[in-house]
Design a protein around this nucleic acid. Structure first.
Lengths: 234, 234
DNA sequence: TGTTTGTATCCTGCATGCAGAATGCGGCAT
DNA sequence: ATGCCGCATTCTGCATGCAGGATACAAACA
């Protein structure tokens, strides 16, 4: 049974890489080291591990049921993220993000402004639509859902900047503020202003004006800043 | 020979922790993993390793005369720095910074502006002096020396921001531009403008005005940007 | 009782072992 | 000669071994 006739009328594609087109790459199991990294990262920014705590690799390895090697790799990355600090006597301790909250806010602001300016120059109509969709979805949502959508909105802008690196950086910095310790409920007026801010940003982006976009974003971020510095627990 | 008499006139201190006060902490040898990280990082940003090259841990380990473990840790950090990329089939390859040069420039600019604004609010008289000293030193220096002093000048501003994190970020991003591939000699007029720019920045910082400082820095960075986009090899 | 010194345990940092997957090459069939 | 397949080698990813230094505890001394 060599080529059993070339039946042109077949419903199946017969091109050179018919298989290649029909199949998507299998999802490869992600490395243990990466999972450990994410776990630890979440635990730290989420405040599950108290600042000043010594992060023991044996302990983490045991808790996560892995060997020390992937834990060490994860810790290396955490050092790069300034989430932990190498102790002079060896080992690492988790740093207190709270100490840097002001600095981090300014850095985040700078990065987001950078992103929105690039986005203004590069954004596509589809990306504008995505942003509008996110705004609309937020209108009729619970507070919690709204926080998530707000996050997605800002990350979508970062993506529109076209720099994967920037997306990564911004999303890392934003994560710091998802810690319940610093989330404030905010009153209705604040939420309204935030939504209005989102609209203004999209309008500016649509007009492809970096300056207008920056201004709109600045205005918008200021709200978050105010609510953060007020620091009203809920 | 217990206390052989308490000779008050001794020139030696006899307080409780006389030893503690006399001694400074010994300098601990830095971890091999950190050294490997620095080596690899330099090699990559310096262009010693061509973009797209697969970074083999065995190879690096052999070249640096260490085992694979510290190399793996170093590579983990490089992943975080976006200097290498994990291949879907395992291992990593070095990324091409050149592809991102524009984005990186904007990010760096954003970070430096952030730093100069914070610095304007927080800089001390001593730090102002340091900056002035660096400017003066640059006046009578060779080109190469001047590049180094320029680097130090900008890092000194970052330090004046008071955020160690920001210092780290900025210095990483600046390193990308030290690659000879992108350094342009620049004509005399450009150098003069750069020095003038430095003076203006310091003046603005001294007045503790974030806005003026930002403006001065923006103006200054633009020069570098122009010379970079002109891309004249020397 | 408070301090100090000796000692046992723990932990880190690096090296190496090992299984499984990817890569490259030679032989084979067409 | 060309294309394909199977096999050997290489490399990664994780686990573990091991030595040296840090930490903690307890006995001994003042």
């Amino acid at each position: 049974m060599k080529k059993s006739g070339r039946i042109k009328s077949s419903i199946y594609p017969r091109s050179r890489d018919a298989v290649g087109k029909a199949l998507a790459p299998v999802t490869r199991p992600q490395r243990v080291a990466d999972q450990v990294y994410r776990h630890l990262r979440r635990a730290i920014v989420g405040g599950k591990i108290a600042p000043g705590t010594r992060l023991r690799e044996v302990e983490a390895a045991a808790a996560l049921k892995v060997s020390r090697t992937p834990v060490r790799e994860a810790i290396s990355r955490l050092i790069g993220d300034w989430l932990v600090r190498e102790l002079p006597t060896g080992g690492v301790e988790v740093l207190d993000i709270g100490d840097e909250l002001t600095d981090i806010f300014h850095i985040r602001e700078a990065l987001e402004i950078c992103a929105v300016r690039l986005a203004a120059m590069r954004i596509t109509p589809e990306q504008v639509e995505e942003l509008e969709y996110l705004i609309e979805s937020a209108e009729s949502s619970t507070f919690k859902e709204r926080v998530r959508l707000n996050q997605r909105f800002h990350l979508a802008i970062a993506e529109a900047s076209g720099s994967a690196r920037l997306v990564e950086m911004i999303s890392s910095f934003r994560e710091y503020y998802l810690n319940p310790r610093w989330i404030t409920r905010g009153d209705r007026k604040m939420v309204e202003r935030a939504i209005h801010g989102h609209r203004q940003i999209v309008a500016a982006l649509r007009s492809h004006s970096p300056d207008r976009s920056e201004k709109a974003l600045r205005q918008h971020l200021k709200i978050g800043w105010i609510s953060m510095t007020n620091d009203q627990d809920d």
